[in-house]
Amino acid sequence: MTAQQLAAEASRAVEPFYRLLDAVAEEVLRSRPPRAALTETHFSGLQRLLAGLLAEEHGIWGMGFVAAPSVVEGRERYMAWWQRHNERVARLRLNFDPTSIDVYDYLQMDWYQLAQRGQQRVAYGPYVDYSGSDMYTITATIPVIADGIFLGVAGADLVVGDVERRLIEVLRHTDEDAVVVNTERRVIAANTPRWLVGSRLDTVPTVGETFADVAELPLGTGWCLAIARR
């Protein structure tokens, strides 16, 4: 199979995560009152949705809505985010006090900023989320927009091992060494020990001495799939 064919299959393997984020974004928009300020009380339906999704999809550690400044009335920062701990789902609560030494300023996070700048699908990582889940994760986000106004992002912390497993199942369709890397050249998955998950390639994969075929995943995250030369 060509890199383009494998890239298309790899996209289909990860696409379900973004369909779940679409559902989260739709619930946020549905909860938003037409002629009143958005408050925390409007998110009861979102909480039920997130609890159900986390119970069903074990490829996700946590997920929710992260609001732009002052979108939620009386809140300069606001996260409606739930996490799964074994079989229990609980609300994640972080410190948003800007005067505190351990403030969690999500406005500076790449997964937030890229969506704010208009990227329709963001996949940041893999990285260790020391502030949230303490897990090795990939944070996937999409922008939530109403009437041209950026309200925030719908996001999910993906289990790296689950993403890797889905992609390896695709990479097994070729007998050649193949790898999927993100925009920072970090390895997401490979069908060979030649590349370790999380390691960084020296250069962006291009057709040349090392790689015989390269294609970007249609997923929209900027990931690419490369097949090595024999």
Rank of each mutant, 00 (worst) to 15 (best):
Q119H: 10
P126V: 03
G125K: 01
D175L: 09
D147I: 09
G161A: 10
S133Q: 06
M135H: 00
A156W: 00
R121Q: 10
S131V: 03
L167Y: 04
A123C: 13
G152L: 04
I145D: 09
T139G: 00
Y127L: 03
A123Q: 14
D134C: 10
Y124P: 09
Y130R: 14
V144L: 13
L114D: 13
G152K: 03
Y127P: 04
Y130K: 03
H173L: 11
G118M: 01
V122T: 09
A140C: 04
Y124W: 10
T174V: 13
F150V: 07
G155S: 04
A178V: 13
F150H: 05
R121D: 14
Q119D: 12
V163Q: 11
Q113D: 02
F150G: 06
A156F: 02
L151W: 00
D147S: 07
Y124S: 08
I145R: 00
G118L: 12
V160Y: 00
L158D: 03
R121N: 15
R117G: 07
G118C: 13
V159F: 08
V153A: 04
A140N: 00
R117F: 13
V170K: 01
I149M: 02
P126Q: 08
A178F: 10
A154V: 12
I149K: 06
D129C: 09
T141E: 01
L167H: 06
Q116I: 05
R166P: 14
L171G: 00
E169N: 05
L167V: 09
Q116C: 08
V179H: 03
I145Q: 02
V159E: 15
Y124C: 05
Y136N: 04
A178I: 15
E164M: 10
D162N: 13
L158T: 04
Q113Y: 12
G161H: 07
R165L: 12
S131A: 15
L158F: 13
D147N: 05
